[in-house]
Design a binder for these strands. Structure first.
Lengths: 104, 104
DNA sequence: ACATCACATAAGTCTGTGCTTATCTGATGC
DNA sequence: GCATCAGATAAGCACAGACTTATGTGATGT
């Protein structure tokens, strides 16, 4: 159970905002830097952390590297969350059916 | 959006194992220490972090303090996760219905 | 009142980690 | 070949955070 890498990766606000940007579609490292005040090496290091946590995946394209959200990481968060289904408020009870699917 | 506190709190493996223990039911701080090699102040500090992240809530009972899972925190993780619904694998498509509920 | 318990808080130490600058690798275009 | 670009890696620094020991606080029992 490697929830460790995932939550440590998401603990950093910069990494979460990078991840959020990727939710709108794949981007390379330079595009991800636009708007944020962050150096090239810092971005590269953040992406390495997100990648080794299974949250993003990379695809080389010439001298660019395109990053995109890796569903694997999201699923692992969902699985972790599933362990606490007993504590979800009743109004979101539909969750149970979903979580049963994810357990398979 | 206080995802920050939540993910920072869960980034620590000790805190996650404490949280997992609480999934089996409310416990006071001493009971939570059983089995884990952790000092009393350390446990107290971890519980303070979990509490201020909205992941657990406390209820005084004489000189004991009972801690329990706070659904609030779980819901906030679920809401965060909901923003990336587009990236969930199709087989867990039931998620969509659930997430729509949570958005309200 | 006093000792003891359950727990919180304070202050200090030490490790982890996010940043920096500098350099390296590999792909592109002339 | 050579200059340039996108990006990764290295090494050092500075701060955040998880631990320690010591002490504080409030409730319980005699």
């Amino acid at each position: 159970m490697e929830s460790d890498d995932i939550f440590r990766a998401l603990a950093d606000p910069t990494r979460r905002s990078v991840f959020e940007k990727l939710a709108f579609g794949a981007m390379n490292a330079s595009e991800l830097r636009r708007g944020i005040a962050i150096s090239q090496p810092a971005m590269s290091q953040h992406l390495a952390v997100l990648r080794s946590a299974g949250l993003v995946s990379e695809r080389r394209d010439g001298r660019f590297v395109n990053y995109e959200v890796d569903p694997e990481g999201l699923v692992r968060i969902g699985e972790w969350l599933a362990r606490y289904r007993a504590y979800w408020p009743r109004r979101i009870d539909d969750l149970k059916a979903l979580l049963k699917d994810m357990d398979q």
